[in-house]
Design a binder for these strands. Structure first.
Lengths: 203, 203
DNA sequence: ATATGTAATTAACACTGTTAATATAACTAT
DNA sequence: ATAGTTATATTAACAGTGTTAATTACATAT
């Protein structure tokens, strides 16, 4: 292994180390408790060192988002592989996304708060290799499967997919930011809502 | 008019002046462009003076939320007064909320970002005289009207109301924070989504 | 005129993200 | 081994943020 590769590897490892520490801060102190300086202190380096591994804070947050979504992407594919009925698959995937958001509030906040600019326009988003894109397209494929199986009314797939994304997003963010409003009954409301919307799109 | 009343009146007037300036900053510079120091400069006072009229930044933001929601509350009652069919009333109210959010992005962000603590627990929220409460209960009454008219399946009213709130919230926030994602087709998606969910809850 | 209470200000604290300039360490070529 | 080069880490600083304690200016009441 050449020296250049060794350096690159070491750099990649350090990047990982920073990322792990950053995630720990998020889990431990929440989104508001995170700062570049705090992260620097945790990894025992000066704050400016981080900037040798990440362009800026947004870049760091984006990397964390990607990790988070990569985990969910795996779960999504697992659901698809074990569930035969397309509508049930979609329902499970749907509820899983909601559960994932509610169980990882701080990571979800990172995704939500991270500037939309990092994903670029819709075209750039579609052509990107981001995990957000992968998750979106997996959902879209699930919707397409429902239409193809004749279970859904024939509509624009993107509209339906986005409607589902919107619904889960609304539920998660409202629960995270107005926790008392649903009186801890998020799961009941979630099921009711998922039922209603799937019924609404079914034939 | 006594001196004390005069002082109270003057204080109330100044409070209003601060509030108006704050709203102007939000409209002009957006949520991220707002700061207490900028507001102070605009009203030609030192930053600390604001703290004689508002407990802190959150308190100020809350006041702006209330104003914003008061306007929407009026529109909601207008819709109710002119629309005879309960389901159509709900649909219009629903779409109106979404439109209101999309047309006033910065004010909507204020509502969303303002710490949930200002509304307290659900019980405190219900007993409060906040505009958020009024809007919520108006929506709930509309849902009840649909159930009473035998148009909706008999379910917990709160669950349905919250489901509607969640959906509009999701649509608005996703459009505001991932604008390119819906490719400016928010209105199409909104109508489709509202259609689907109302169909889902109808008999 | 003096005392009282309110309102506004200055200065400061403890933070934030980020950058330019500088020092240090590591590797390359002579 | 030494000199030159490059990558990495650090210090100091900038321009902000919300907020508070201490202090001054001012209008009112005695």
């Amino acid at each position: 292994m050449g020296v250049l590769e060794k350096r690159a590897k070491r750099k990649e490892e350090f990047r990982r180390e920073i990322l792990d520490s950053a995630r720990e801060i998020f889990i431990h102190d929440g989104y508001d408790g995170f700062s570049m300086r705090k992260l620097a202190e945790k990894i025992d380096y000066s704050p400016t060192t981080i900037y040798n591994y990440f362009k800026n804070k947004d870049d760091l947050l984006f990397a964390i988002c990607e990790e988070f979504l990569a985990n969910f992407f795996d779960e999504l594919n697992h659901i698809r592989s074990v569930s035969p009925d397309p509508v049930e698959t979609l329902r499970k995937a749907f509820l899983s996304l909601i559960e994932f958001g509610l169980k990882n509030p701080n990571q979800y906040k990172v995704i939500f708060f991270t500037k939309s600019s990092v994903y670029g326009t819709h075209e750039e988003f579609v052509q990107s290799e981001s995990m957000a894109r992968n998750v979106y397209f997996t959902f879209k494929e699930m919707v397409q499967a429902c239409i193809k199986a004749g279970r859904f009314r024939e509509m624009d797939e993107d509209v339906i997919t986005q409607a589902l994304a919107i619904t889960s997003h609304g539920l998660v963010t409202l629960t995270l930011y107005r926790p008392d409003h649903l009186k801890g009954k998020s799961d009941v409301t979630a099921r009711s809502l998922v039922d209603a919307i799937l019924r609404g799109y079914q034939k």
